Computed example of a mutant assay.
Amino acid sequence: MDAVFKIENWTSWNSTINDGVAATPQLPEIPPMQRRRFSFLSKMALRVILDILPNPRAIRSVFSSRHGELHRTLDLLLELTQGSPLSPAKFSQSVYNTSSGLYSINQKNTAPSTVVTSGRNSLAMAFVEAISQSICYQEKVLLVYVDEPLPEIYKAYADEQEELAAFACILSAAEFGWHAKLIADDDSSLKSPRHLASQLIAALSKSEDYFELELEAQKWIWDLKDE
């Protein structure tokens, strides 16, 4: 990846933690009968989308998550082991494109939507996809990334400092703006870096013109190029 793009706007959502429990994103814009079926992950996705796009708009979108609806999938697997009937609502919303589908339905967005996942590098690959689509179609693209820490049963397999993450931006390919590129970094594969989305949110919040993010065996370098 070696590309130049502009970020029109971006937002993130951070949950407050009380007694070890994360506060749930509030979605007063969504009818109660609909939002009560949403998972925590889907609520995070809709929250950052509605913060950045409060009004319905036809726009291409790229959604990404490392673990996706793993918490909901685990609930279904546990129900199977107990011989309990599966919940149709849980089953229908246990896939990687759940958030994409809910957004498209609730905001009546009929533009194409893509879902990307690529391990620890999922957010970076989502940027690659979004920028590629913007170049190809000469349109702005909505990028949404959400993720949750692994369920307790899978904690032993975590290979990074996992965190709740919710990020959204509207970007477009351009001649000036952010110049982002991936370079090899053999030492990074030996580390357990902070979640990539958390690294990016922290860097963008500082409004710096240059920063480096750690990926798996790579560095992601951002450099702001003015006109």
Rank of each mutant, 00 (worst) to 15 (best):
A23D: 14
Q82R: 13
I52G: 11
S99Y: 04
S188R: 14
V21T: 00
E152R: 04
I7S: 15
F91E: 05
R120P: 09
E227D: 15
E79P: 07
K140R: 14
T16Y: 12
P54K: 02
M125A: 10
L190M: 13
E163Y: 01
A124K: 03
W10G: 05
A203F: 03
H71K: 13
A124D: 13
K206T: 07
I201D: 03
L215R: 03
D51F: 00
K191C: 15
P151E: 01
V116L: 09
Y210S: 07
F38Y: 15
P25Q: 07
E163W: 04
A165M: 00
L86W: 11
R120H: 12
K191V: 13
A165F: 06
K225E: 12
I49G: 04
N9G: 14
W220L: 11
L70A: 13
A22D: 04
Y154S: 08
E29M: 12
L171T: 03
R35Q: 15
L164W: 01
F40W: 01
L224I: 10
R47H: 15
A22N: 06
R57T: 08
E227V: 11
E163K: 06
D186C: 12
S134G: 08
R35I: 08
D75H: 03
F40I: 03
V115Y: 04
M44V: 11
R36W: 12
S188D: 02
P28N: 15
E29Y: 05
S99L: 09
S61K: 11
Q218A: 03
S104N: 03
I105L: 10
D186P: 14
L76F: 07
L76W: 12
G83H: 13
S122K: 08
A130K: 06
L77F: 12
T16V: 05
S64K: 00
L182C: 14
L164Y: 07
M125N: 14
P149V: 10
E152P: 02
A130W: 00
I17P: 07
D186V: 12
L53D: 01
R37A: 12
V144W: 06
C136P: 03
K181G: 00
G119S: 12
A156K: 11
I17K: 08
V115P: 02
E208A: 05
P32N: 06
L164V: 14
A158F: 09
T98Q: 03
F167E: 05
A3F: 13
A166Y: 02
C169N: 01
S172I: 01
G177R: 10
S118M: 13
R66V: 09
L74V: 11
D226L: 11
L77E: 09
R194T: 07
P54R: 00
K108D: 05
E212N: 05
V115R: 01
C169V: 09
E208G: 09
H67C: 06
Y210N: 10
I170F: 00
A22K: 04
V116C: 05
A124V: 07
Y96P: 08
S42H: 04
F167L: 00
P56C: 02
E139G: 10
K140Q: 12
A124I: 08
T11L: 02
T117H: 11
S188Y: 13
L86Y: 09
T98W: 00
I135A: 00
S15Q: 08
